[in-house]
Amino acid sequence: MPSETPQAEVGPTGCPHRSGPHSAKGSLEKGSPEDKEAKEPLWIRPDAPSRCTWQLGRPASESPHHHTAPAKSPKILPDILKKIGDTPMVRINKIGKKFGLKCELLAKCEFFNAGGSVKDRISLRMIEDAERDGTLKPGDTIIEPTSGNTGIGLALAAAVRGYRCIIVMPEKMSSEKVDVLRALGAEIVRTPTNARFDSPESHVGVAWRLKNEIPNSHILDQYRNASNPLAHYDTTADEILQQCDGKLDMLVASVGTGGTITGIARKLKEKCPGCRIIGVDPEGSILAEPEELNQTEQTTYEVEGIGYDFIPTVLDRTVVDKWFKSNDEEAFTFARMLIAQEGLLCGGSAGSTVAVAVKAAQELQEGQRCVVILPDSVRNYMTKFLSDRWMLQKGFLKEEDLTEKKPWWWHLRVQELGLSAPLTVLPTITCGHTIEILREKGFDQAPVVDEAGVILGMVTLGNMLSSLLAGKVQPSDQVGKVIYKQFKQIRLTDTLGRLSHILEMDHFALVV
């Protein structure tokens, strides 16, 4: 994948999101292997301009796509893939009243899908469409860049269908997702969380590099694949309309690839034109409109599966009536509230959605109805927002919020430890010299600072030695090549209790 991002070429006709291997024109390309080798690009942008032909009021008969309808489940399912879809609609009884809503608040519980998330729908649909058009064949390999849930859905379907599955996901995604993927037989590649989507090191860039190296491999490409919004247009939206008897006044959905909100909203605009569509985008993402909503100094966020630093091709923002931004604290607070007060075992993005819903639905009156999409299960986040310690460490809970008995030293300040200034190293000294210094002084790690004293990161003896043994660096290389740029900081005025929580999850903390 090139470091400079080429513009994806656009073909003359058809839909841009065809499933299957992508040609340089962004659509299915038939021909000899030699032709494909000559024409197939190194990668295709996940934010390529959409060429979708959908228009409100256009006859369904003019759609270029294969459409399906929700099917009634048999008493005995032939395999677990038949437990994807037909998820329950559940009334939220307490939270709406707590925040003064007059309307009825309903939750579409997508964590009841077989793999635990709304992404099971698009995973199965992308595979079925690729099999139907002859792209996927027995023994082929599926590769997908994902925040985890699409990966789980694909790995689940691949396990049943017999495909090899490789999932490329950023490091910030939970260990629970990784464990589930491994249990399903998927191979996992992790990428830096802070890598831009168009960087060769991003999950998108690495996935395309693997595709170019592995024979008979395919990126189904949830960011561009029409099967993504079509899955929701054909099934999720129809289920909502049936469950609500066609009567709903507002739908609120958090947005990642945009397939969920695009597919549902398009069908609702056709069948229930008075329904307002509300999009939820986390602070630090750029999906919301108008652009002024996205202006923030924050560039990272903890909530998973929603928000991006690019506009995915499948996201149709014209069908969203209003956007709201959400933050991590309210997302996790509301997710825990949904679990504790409503018994809905949902993930953090569901918290984002409901946090926005109780604001947006203030305009609705008694007798009206708001539906929220709860995308995934708490299963993926047992060591994250479900953990009091994690919430404390991230600053989303305060010590006084917890009532468990603490040891005698818990409320003492870090400054009472009488710490001395640490050994520091410059980023320009060599790895070999740094190892000598650390061994001589008896230290395992040291902060790396520039000549102005600005902290650049941390270097550890173990990481340097393993990097040297693996051949990633040489003793003569500058130590700046092996620094940890993500590390926890703590102030002298913070409590030892807070430091204790940090050290339970990290090997060190830097006192500043």
Rank of each mutant, 00 (worst) to 15 (best):
T13V: 09
A114Y: 04
T5K: 08
G116P: 07
R58W: 15
A231N: 04
R164L: 06
S3D: 03
P215Q: 08
R190N: 08
K25W: 02
K36G: 02
L181D: 00
A253R: 03
H17K: 03
A183S: 12
V90F: 01
G11S: 13
G96K: 09
G256A: 01
R91F: 07
K72S: 03
K137H: 10
S117Q: 05
A195K: 06
L241D: 04
I122A: 04
F112H: 00
R161E: 04
L136G: 04
G148L: 01
T260M: 05
S254H: 07
G20F: 10
S63Y: 04
I167F: 08
D129M: 07
K271V: 11
E9R: 09
L56A: 11
I95N: 05
D221T: 05
K25S: 10
A48R: 10
Y163K: 02
T87L: 05
T193F: 07
I219C: 01
N212T: 14
S254A: 04
A71T: 15
E4W: 12
V204L: 03
S61L: 08
E29V: 13
L42V: 05
A69N: 10
N216T: 06
T141S: 14
T13S: 02
N113A: 05
A71H: 13
E29C: 11
H203E: 05
L136R: 00
D198I: 05
P49V: 11
I188S: 05
A69M: 08
S19M: 08
W208D: 12
A114G: 13
E187G: 02
L251W: 01
R125H: 11
S19N: 05
M169N: 02
A195L: 03
S32F: 08
H65E: 01
P59K: 09
T87G: 02
P170D: 02
L106Q: 08
S202T: 08
E62F: 07
Q243A: 07
V189E: 08
L124I: 08
R224Q: 09
A38T: 14
P41Y: 09
Q243T: 14
E110H: 01
V189T: 10
K102A: 15
T257P: 00
I219N: 06
K72E: 11
R190F: 00
T193Y: 09
I214C: 05
K75D: 02
R18G: 13
E34K: 12
L248S: 02
L77H: 03
R125K: 11
